[in-house]
Each structure stands twice: as structure tokens, then as C-alpha cells.
Design a protein around this nucleic acid. Structure first.
Length: 203
DNA sequence: CACATGATCGCCT
DNA sequence: GGCGATCATGTGG
């Protein structure tokens, strides 16, 4: 068990409400764009001291590996930090940006194929501030996710999990990705996906 | 409302 | 030594 940052208590979930189809390894191994779309509307949940906390994902971005200038694995870059991106689909890749904010990614494809989906925003359960997780750094902060969780296997570990929702499919819109002006032509690729009806999408 | 800035550190050149 | 897959706060129009 990883005993670090505590999740925001307002994100407490009823475990009974988490009886949703849990993505299998095969779900994460699919094409990265398919996973990025499939994660919009899914739930991310973390268990801390025996209780569950989490939210419904409303915004994601796909990062396509060695050929994607915006990806940390661009040109085959492989450092200790990025290593989890090279793991099998379903692992977690967490990194620190600007020296203070964490960003959580779900690794896709197979071992040796460094692609991932950035979790950019989520909305908490009823009662939680709508924009508490409206941004990748805020999402990690609210759930207490840090680099200590990087490399964790979502399909095997029990502390952080992804659940697919049974409710209505969201109206998914797309756009170019945020904050990657340095990425050349890749900056215009339509790899950001979000729930067009959510108030928790980042701005 | 639209910028502009500071915080803070690991990775890359 | 520069800058980033960010965010909160401050200024000015």
C-alpha cells in the first residue's frame, strides 16, 4: 500500500456505486485514441485507508509515442521517469510538471509501445465542487495521486482503479491538445477528447 | 474580460 | 542553464 497524500474527503464514493464494469487488460491495450475516447465517462477511483474516492472522467488526451513530438516518449526517449510508458497497457504513468503539479496517464497498447492517455479532468460525486478536478494537476491533487503511484498496474493493483460506467454515453467532442505549442505539427492533431455536456472540463 | 507572472524541480541540451 | 502535458493570483482595460 502506498501511504502518501490523502484524497479530498468530498470525493468519497459509495463502494456499491462502483459496481461498474471494470476495464480488462484488453481494454487498455486497444488503439490509444479508442482508449482516450473510452475513458471519457469512465470513473477513476482510489482506495485510501479502506475507503473509496474518485470521479467521472470528462476530459482526456492521447499521446502517441515515438512519432508524437508532444509525448515524453517522443523519438524513443526512455528515462527513469518515462519508463512506465513502455509498460503493458493498463499501467499508470505519473509525472511532475512545473515543479509542483502532477499529471496522471493511463498507458495503452503493449509493452514496448510507449503510448498513453492523459487524464485531464473529472467531476466528483454529488456534493463535491464541480471544478475540483477541472485540470490534470487539480485531478491529481484532489485524489492525492503523485509520482509515488507511477508504474502501478491498474489491472492488478487494488489501490487505484478505472471503472467503466453503465450510464448513457457522453457526447464526446474533440480538439487539439493543451499546452504543447512546442510540438510542431503535432500541436494541431485532434487528440483531446471531452464530454461536451460537462461543467468540469478544463479551460 | 484578457493577459502576465511566480512558484519550483526534474529532465534535457 | 532553459523550460515544461499547470494553476492561482494579480494587474489593467
Amino acid at each position: 500500500m502506498i501511504a502518501n497524500k490523502r484524497p479530498d474527503s468530498r470525493l468519497a464514493l459509495d463502494p456499491a456505486g462502483l459496481r461498474l464494469a471494470e476495464p480488462s487488460r484488453a481494454f487498455f491495450r486497444r488503439a490509444t485514441v479508442a482508449v482516450a475516447r473510452g475513458l471519457v465517462g469512465a470513473w477513476i477511483a482510489r482506495r485510501w485507508r479502506g475507503r473509496w474516492y474518485g470521479g467521472r472522467i470528462v476530459e482526456t488526451e492521447a499521446y502517441l509515442g515515438a512519432g508524437d513530438r508532444a509525448a515524453h516518449s517522443w523519438a524513443g526517449r526512455r528515462t527513469t521517469r518515462v519508463e512506465p510508458m513502455y509498460a503493458d497497457g493498463g499501467h499508470l504513468y505519473v509525472f511532475l510538471v512545473y515543479g509542483m503539479h502532477h499529471c496522471a496517464n493511463v498507458v495503452t497498447r503493449r509493452e514496448g509501445e510507449p503510448e498513453a492517455v492523459l487524464l485531464r479532468a473529472a467531476e466528483g460525486p454529488a456534493g463535491a465542487p464541480v471544478r475540483l478536478m477541472a485540470g490534470p494537476g487539480k485531478l491529481c491533487s484532489a485524489l492525492g495521486i503523485t509520482t509515488a503511484h507511477s508504474g502501478l498496474d491498474l489491472a492488478a493493483e487494488k489501490s487505484i482503479r478505472i471503472f467503466r460506467s453503465r450510464s448513457r454515453r457522453p457526447r464526446i467532442l474533440s480538439s487539439s491538445r493543451i499546452g504543447i505549442d512546442y510540438a510542431g505539427d503535432a500541436k494541431n492533431w485532434p487528440l483531446r477528447f471531452f464530454d461536451g455536456d460537462s461543467e468540469a472540463v478544463s479551460r
